[in-house]
Amino acid sequence: MSQEVDFLQRPDGEQIAWRRVAGAGPMVVWLGGFRSDMIGTKAQALAEWAAASGRGYIRFDYLGHGESSGDFQAKGTITRWREDALAVLDELTQGPLVLVGSSMGGWLACLAAVARPERVACMVLIAPAVDFTEKLMAPEIPPEGLADLERDGVWMRPSDYGDPYPITRTLLEDGARWSILGAEPVPIVVPVRILQGGADPDVPWRHALELAQALKGEDVVFSLIKDGDHRLSRPQDIARLIAAVEEVAS
């Protein structure tokens, strides 16, 4: 099952691809991960759940991801992907929202909730990779990668999920601007559910727990799936995700 793709025109001429399921609110908004897309297992499972349950749901691809236009290497930054997410919220949705963010999408969901507190009713985060450019990625860049970044402004990072992909100096420097983990609480007070794999090689569970502890709100539940990986896309993980969305959305 898939919905027809449509496109949101951005001021610079780029187009953000999106799909929607019509239904009752609050609308569920999917925010995918770094180099992921809106037809992945979790996003598609939520689309099927929304269609079956009569729930409004929208998913989209950031610039340089999936079916959206744009050069990932030349234009891809947290600033730009945050703008894409806010454009979707502002132009394609109405009323209260349930933000569901996976990995980088968890970070962008937090940034969106801070920017649009009057719109966000609750959140479900899967392996939230908040501040990942500064706290998770930068410390693991090998000496040859640092040399590439210094010389060329880009490093081709090996991946366990496919071909090497570009990490730019611009991405790393820009990401540091949007760090939310620090001395101050993260100003999000809505109910939040966090699903985190204990065997996640990309986002350590302690990193996700740090976010849970930093959130200003009290209605925060952190669920550790001890044998879960980063993707949390197994049938039992999908069931947990849908249950979490149903809980907070009700």
Score class of each variant (00 low, 15 high):
residue 154 V to T: 11
residue 121 A to K: 15
residue 249 A to I: 06
residue 138 A to W: 04
residue 230 H to N: 07
residue 217 G to V: 14
residue 198 G to Q: 13
residue 249 A to W: 04
residue 46 L to W: 07
residue 89 L to S: 09
residue 53 S to W: 07
residue 15 Q to F: 07
residue 216 K to T: 14
residue 87 A to I: 06
residue 100 V to F: 13
residue 143 P to I: 05
residue 135 K to H: 15
residue 239 A to Y: 02
residue 165 Y to K: 02
residue 144 E to K: 03
residue 55 R to Y: 06
residue 224 L to V: 13
residue 142 P to T: 03
residue 14 E to Q: 11
residue 170 T to G: 04
residue 69 S to L: 02
residue 2 S to M: 12
residue 85 A to R: 00
residue 4 E to M: 07
residue 34 F to Q: 03
residue 117 P to W: 08
residue 98 V to G: 05
residue 19 R to V: 09
residue 217 G to L: 13
residue 88 V to T: 07
residue 29 V to C: 07
residue 16 I to N: 03
residue 138 A to T: 09
residue 114 V to D: 09
residue 172 L to V: 00
residue 248 V to W: 13
residue 34 F to T: 12
residue 173 E to F: 01
residue 145 G to I: 06
residue 10 R to F: 09
residue 186 V to Y: 10
residue 209 L to Y: 12
residue 161 Y to A: 01
residue 169 R to F: 01
residue 64 G to D: 00
residue 108 L to Y: 12
residue 238 I to P: 12
residue 165 Y to E: 01
residue 245 V to W: 12
residue 65 H to T: 00
residue 218 E to L: 07
residue 231 R to F: 00
residue 194 I to Q: 03
residue 82 R to C: 06
residue 11 P to S: 02
residue 68 S to G: 03
residue 48 E to R: 09
residue 150 E to N: 12
residue 234 R to N: 09
residue 3 Q to G: 13
residue 239 A to L: 08
residue 187 P to Q: 10
residue 191 P to D: 10
residue 209 L to E: 12
residue 72 F to A: 03
residue 135 K to T: 15
residue 219 D to T: 04
residue 75 K to I: 02
residue 173 E to Q: 08
residue 70 G to V: 03
residue 103 S to A: 11
residue 239 A to D: 13
residue 139 P to V: 12
residue 85 A to K: 01
residue 161 Y to L: 04
residue 41 T to Q: 10
residue 75 K to R: 13
residue 79 T to V: 03
residue 137 M to G: 01
residue 159 S to R: 10
residue 27 M to Q: 13
residue 230 H to V: 06
residue 79 T to M: 02
residue 230 H to K: 07
residue 61 D to W: 04
residue 214 A to E: 11
residue 67 E to N: 05
residue 129 A to L: 12
residue 207 H to L: 03
residue 130 V to R: 09
residue 127 A to D: 06
residue 193 R to C: 05
residue 234 R to K: 15
residue 78 I to D: 04
residue 217 G to Y: 10
residue 161 Y to S: 01
residue 9 Q to L: 07
residue 166 P to M: 00
residue 26 P to A: 14
residue 213 Q to T: 14
residue 34 F to K: 09
residue 25 G to N: 02
residue 221 V to K: 10
residue 199 A to D: 08
residue 103 S to G: 14
residue 167 I to L: 14
residue 250 S to R: 15
residue 107 W to Q: 10
residue 226 K to G: 01
residue 128 P to Y: 13
residue 26 P to E: 09
residue 234 R to V: 06
residue 62 Y to S: 04
residue 219 D to F: 00
residue 187 P to G: 10
residue 158 P to L: 13
residue 215 L to E: 08
residue 175 G to D: 05
residue 87 A to Q: 09
residue 97 L to M: 11
residue 206 R to L: 08
residue 86 L to I: 14
residue 59 R to F: 00
residue 4 E to C: 00
residue 132 F to R: 15
residue 105 G to H: 02
residue 157 R to N: 10
residue 38 M to F: 09
residue 233 S to N: 11
residue 139 P to E: 13
residue 96 P to L: 13
